Amino acid sequence: MLTHEMALITRDALLLPDGRIEVRVVDPAQLEVIAQVLKGQYRLAFAMERADKAIPCYPAATECSIIDFNLLDDDSLGLVLEGQQRVKILSAAQRRDGVWIARTLASNNWQHEPIEGEFELISQALAQFYEVNPDLFGLYANLHLDDATWVSQRWLEVLPLYNKDKQLLLSQPDCHKTMDFVLELIKSHAR
């Protein structure tokens, strides 16, 4: 059981493997840990916030890499993160500067599989969603709309669900329950 120490970024958002998100970093301690990540001193994990526990997030997180960064108008740092590998947070400790460092264990990513039959509707709806949300669309060089796992993970990232409900779908061994959920949601709004 190989565990890794990772710097932890938490937000009220979800990032999964092959997904991308832009986050704003203002706190000097967070900026310092980002520099340490870039120097290879830490790996980086992104997790959904959870205020009611000793650890500031849900246990399902995603190891990610920094693929771009920009100095924003307010002198804060904008980072574009790309999800790589699902991880489980086993424990976390807060440093004196307020930064959280987590002990993680790799989890299985969902396997890629083709979208077939009526589930192609989910893929088409995601393409339309990105057309009307160009900021999100701009994060991706390629959309993998023929991959059920990629499509269902992107839907989990953008759907306005409670984080605990997203965690239930993430705990499944594959994307099938998420595909069923999104398809029913789309069909119920089309009626």
Rank of each mutant, 00 (worst) to 15 (best):
N108L: 12
N142M: 11
H4K: 13
A29F: 10
L136Q: 11
C64F: 05
T62P: 08
I67T: 12
R86K: 12
I67W: 10
N142L: 15
F46Y: 10
A125Y: 07
V99D: 04
Q30L: 12
I101T: 01
I115E: 04
N142C: 12
R86S: 03
F119G: 03
H176C: 12
V23I: 15
P173C: 07
V33T: 10
F129Y: 14
L121D: 04
T149G: 06
C175D: 08
V182A: 05
E5V: 00
R50V: 08
L169P: 04
V80Y: 09
T178W: 00
A125L: 03
A47M: 05
P59H: 01
A13V: 04
A61M: 01
W155V: 04
D74Q: 07
Q94H: 06
A60S: 15
F46T: 00
D68G: 05
S76Q: 03
W110I: 06
R43V: 00
I89C: 00
L16F: 05
L145E: 04
V23H: 02
R43K: 13
P160G: 06
G117Y: 12
I89H: 00
N70G: 10
A92S: 09
L121S: 05
G83I: 05
E63Y: 06
L71D: 13
D97K: 07
Q153M: 15
Q128S: 14
V26M: 13
S152W: 01
G19S: 08
T62D: 04
G19F: 02
E49G: 11
F181T: 05
R191Q: 15
A125E: 11
L185Y: 13
L44N: 02
E63L: 09
A45R: 00
K39T: 12
T62G: 05
G78I: 03
S188K: 13
E5H: 06
Q153D: 10
D180H: 14
R20M: 12
W100D: 00
E157C: 09
Q167C: 09
F69A: 07
Q84F: 06
V158A: 04
T149V: 06
A148M: 11
Q128L: 14
P28C: 06
A93Q: 15
G83K: 03
P28H: 06
E184I: 03
L81P: 01
L16G: 02
L145F: 07
A29Y: 05
D97A: 05
H144M: 11
A125S: 12
Y130L: 15
R154Y: 04
R20W: 08
L79F: 01
R11F: 09
T10C: 13
T149Q: 06
L72Q: 14
C64W: 04
L168R: 13
V25M: 03
A92Y: 00
I67M: 08
A54P: 11
Q128F: 12
A92G: 09
S65I: 14
L15C: 03
E120W: 10
Q167S: 08
L38T: 14
L15K: 06
D147R: 02
R43I: 02
D75A: 14
D68M: 10
I89F: 00
S152H: 04
R24A: 08
E157R: 04
A45G: 01
I21T: 08
D97W: 05
L159H: 05
A35T: 15
S65A: 14
R96Q: 15
F129L: 09
L161C: 05
I101P: 00
R11P: 06
I89V: 07
A127N: 12
R20G: 01
